[in-house]
Design a protein around this nucleic acid. Structure first.
Lengths: 238, 238
DNA sequence: CCAAAAGTGTTTAGTTTACACCCATGC
DNA sequence: GCATGGGTGTAAACTAAACACTTTTGG
C-alpha cells in the first residue's frame, strides 16, 4: 500500500510570510518588488527556500531578519500549505505560508525594494501571494475575537482609544472603545499601568495607559457554546 | 547567522491524515501497523508521498481511497505542516497533516494491517504521529462549537439523542440533548425529516428524526465578541 | 398503570451592545 | 466657561445552561 503509483515527488520547499501591521490607520502587509522574471515588477511576500537543518517556523523567522528585526515580530503562526503543482512557473515549489505580526509602534528599516501596502488595496502581486495575504488577514480577524492576539498589534503601553483604532483597522469596522475595554478587561487581558497620556492641543481628559497582561497568544473564549457542564469556562477536557 | 546551509533544500513531501470517527461511543482514529523498520510494529497515520501532479488535498484524498472510500469521507481539512528536520529517520520528509472525518454509520472495509483506535488510548505510534492525532482532535472539538461540523460525524438522519452521543464522544464530556437541539436549531442547522425512530424494548416516546440542512462546513458563530455594530451576526466585512 | 425515553416550558445566569451621563483637561 | 476627548453607569437584548414537567410509547 506504500506503493504509490505516482512518482515519488521531491519538491523544493519555500516559506512565505504575510507580515501585517496597522500603519496610518490601515492594516498593511510587507511586500517586496520582484526585479527579475518570472513576474518581474510584481509584489511578493518575503521568504525563501527552507534550509536543510531548520523547520519551517525557524526558517521564516530567519528569513524575515533581513526585513524586520526578529525581536519586532510579536507573533508568528502557520497558515497553510500552498501546493498546487503549477503555483509557480518552472520547477515545482511547495510553500508553507505564515502570518506574522508587528506592533504598531515599530517602524523597521526596509530594503529599497520593500514596502508596506494596505491589505485592502494590494498592488499587482506575484503567484498565489494575494490569496495568502487574504488568509492571513482572515486569520487575524478571527483570532482578535477569541484570543488575546491584540497584544501583537499594540505597543507595550497604549490608551484605549489607540487600541480601538488598532482593532478597527484590523477588523475593518468601527469598534466601540467602551465595549472593547470592557470585553478585554472582563477577560483579564488588560491592566492599567497607572500612568496617563497627556491630552492633545484641543484638551480633553488625559487617557489612562494600559498594557496586556500576557505577551504570548492564549485562547480566551474557548467555547462560545457547548461548553462543559457545571464549569464557568473551562478548557477542553482531556 | 547566515551559515545555515541555504543550499536550496529539496525534500520529500508526504501527506498524512488523522481520520476520525465516533465508534462504539468513543472518538477513534484510523491507524495502520508498520511491518518494517523504522518503527516496525508501531502504529502510523495513513498517507504517503505527494504525487508530482497533485496538490496536497488531492493527494490525501487519493491515498485514503485505499483505506476509506472517498465518498465516505464527510470532511477533509489541512491541519499543519510538520517539518522538524529529524522528524523521521533517514532522508528528510516534510509532512502536510490533515483532519479527515467519517460519519458514524459507515464501517469501511479495512486492510488487515489497519484498525481503529480510541484517541484517548492510542497504541505506541510512529514518529510524530501522536501529536498530529492530538491536533486533529483539538481542531474537531473547536469547530464543533462554532461551525456546523457535526454534520460530518452524523449519519444522513439521526435522533437528537444519537447526535448527543456523537458530540459527547467527540468533545469528551456530557452534552445535554435539550440544549444541543436548541443551539443547533436556533442556528438553523437542523431540520426534522418528519419521520420518527421506533422506541427500544423498554418503551419510551419515539424519537423524531433530523438531518443537517447543510452538507458542507460553514462557520455559524463567526464573532463571539467584537462583532460589527448594528448587525445581528454579520460575516466579516471586506 | 407504571417505567422509560423524548421533547418542551420556563427560570436563571451570563455576556455584550448601546447609549446616556459624568470627568478632567486646554484654551 | 466651554469645547473636547476619556471614562463609567446602566438598561436592553440576546444567548445558553439547568431543570421541572409533559408527551408518547412498551409492558
Amino acid at each position: 500500500m506504500r506503493n504509490v503509483t505516482t512518482a515519488s515527488t521531491v519538491a523544493d520547499h519555500e516559506v512565505l510570510a504575510a507580515v501585517l501591521q496597522v500603519r496610518a490607520g490601515s492594516l498593511q502587509v510587507l511586500l517586496w518588488e520582484r526585479a527579475r522574471e518570472p513576474h518581474a515588477h510584481r509584489w511578493s511576500l518575503p521568504g525563501g527556500r527552507l534550509g536543510a537543518t531548520e523547520d519551517v517556523e525557524t526558517s521564516i523567522r530567519r528569513q524575515l531578519e533581513e526585513k524586520v528585526d526578529v525581536r519586532q515580530l510579536s507573533h508568528v503562526e502557520q497558515l497553510a500549505v500552498f501546493s498546487a503543482p503549477d503555483r509557480v512557473p518552472g520547477e515545482r515549489v511547495i510553500a508553507s505560508a505564515f502570518l506574522g505580526l508587528v506592533p504598531s509602534d515599530v517602524d523597521p528599516v526596509l530594503p529599497s525594494d520593500t514596502a508596506w501596502h494596505p491589505v485592502a488595496a494590494l498592488p499587482r502581486t506575484a503567484f498565489d501571494h494575494e490569496s495568502i495575504v487574504r488568509r492571513a488577514r482572515d486569520r487575524l480577524r478571527a483570532k482578535l475575537s477569541y484570543t488575546n492576539l491584540g497584544f501583537a498589534l499594540a505597543p507595550p503601553t497604549f490608551t484605549i482609544s489607540a487600541l480601538r483604532a488598532l482593532y478597527s483597522a484590523a477588523l475593518g469596522y468601527r469598534v466601540s472603545a467602551t465595549n472593547l475595554q470592557r470585553v478585554l478587561s472582563r477577560r483579564g487581558l488588560l491592566e492599567p499601568t497607572g500612568d496617563t497620556a497627556p491630552p492633545g492641543r484641543a484638551g480633553g481628559r488625559p487617557a489612562a495607559l494600559f498594557r496586556f497582561t500576557e505577551r504570548g497568544i492564549e485562547v480566551t473564549d474557548p467555547f462560545a457554546v457547548l461548553r462543559p457542564p457545571n464549569q464557568a469556562r473551562g478548557g477542553a477536557a482531556t
